[in-house]
Nucleic acid binder design. Sequence first.
DNA 1: ACCTGAACACCGTTCAAGT
DNA 2: ACCTGAACACCGTTCAAGT
Lengths: 220, 220
Amino acid sequence: MARPTSAALKPRKSPRQARSTVTVEAIHTAAIQVLLTDGVGRLTTTRVAERAGVSVGTMYQYYPHKEALMFAIIRAHVGSIIDSMMAAADRLSGQTLARISDGLVAAWLDLKTEDLAGSRATYGLAAEFDISDVTRRESERLARALEDLLRSARDAVPADPQAAAFMLIAVMGGAVRNVLEQGAQAEEIAILRAELPRVCRAYLASGSRAANEPAMLTPA
Amino acid sequence: MARPTSAALKPRKSPRQARSTVTVEAIHTAAIQVLLTDGVGRLTTTRVAERAGVSVGTMYQYYPHKEALMFAIIRAHVGSIIDSMMAAADRLSGQTLARISDGLVAAWLDLKTEDLAGSRATYGLAAEFDISDVTRRESERLARALEDLLRSARDAVPADPQAAAFMLIAVMGGAVRNVLEQGAQAEEIAILRAELPRVCRAYLASGSRAANEPAMLTPA
DNA sequence: ACCTGAACACCGTTCAAGT
DNA sequence: ACCTGAACACCGTTCAAGT
């Protein structure tokens, strides 16, 4: 399978009429439904088209191939998660490093465990199709936001905020994924919830310098 | 796709004659070759059989389905990596917590980056087929060894060695996977190599109590 | 401008027939 | 005891024909 470029993964054409917009959305939601109820293994073009109430041919008018459809689903899912994280980052701006760290980890764990089925389905898609483009771009978007957030910390700032933001994402994202993919036992999630905040807090504290003039900063 | 039980994934029959042992190995190595040269997308039963110099029918005599073959490959790959980690754990036994932590992270990073193609191919298989059974079992095997290793630390021991071992695996494994899957840029691997040891060391130091009678322990 | 669905190439899997 | 490969069901994708 030659890796298609990002451009090739976009919908073939933009809907110009109302009814085709409806069609595109129907296909999109049908795909998510099939994914969640039947699993990745049973997600076939025929089944999605049937569920959406259109023919396969119509599907191919908007998504040049199955991968493009999966790509669209992932993009929406990952995008909304990153959006939530950006909002959390906004709320945490200007707080202490420990609070920032705890807040990020809590937000991430909430997002991933709230919709366990969705998260696991996404992980399933993530490797079956080569979606590293989406995840990479979204990761970078979040990384920039976290870098600013870390710089805003009231009490201390990591020596290398860019590296720290990168690592936070890799560690939070990776650890949670590792656990969820391996069955996501309640007991394991509990350990994660207790220990992951400590991992991130200790890391950030270990490589930070006290902020220059803490008293001069306006508390948020 | 009903999730097959672990038993169903094992080779259908054990080879009883010399030539069939050769056949099984030929299929196994052919599959790895196809995987590495052509990618997961082009790994078809026909291609593997052709490369191995047998017919498809013969393949199905030893592997009840394609998934069983993938399962065998993953098991061997993951198993050898865990074996290497166990050996590293052995060498680190009785050292300080910081040395243990650094040693584990270095060993893990070496293993994963030495054979980049193999690692990435494995990640690719990992989600396409449901191999959580293998990875879970191997993770637990390593977790037990790491728990003992942490207890052996000369200077300090984590308050909850079991949780700490679990987290080390989740964090190391997840962070490295996250980075490798997203393209594994040299610069990103460099950050990982510099920062991941700090993540783990800070975490372990933050939740440890000084060993009871450090002077009484025999240095390894 | 959009939709249909039979047709095509290819894949995983089986099994009657061979040695 | 082991191997072969045509045959089958199913999948992703296309395109001539419709409205």
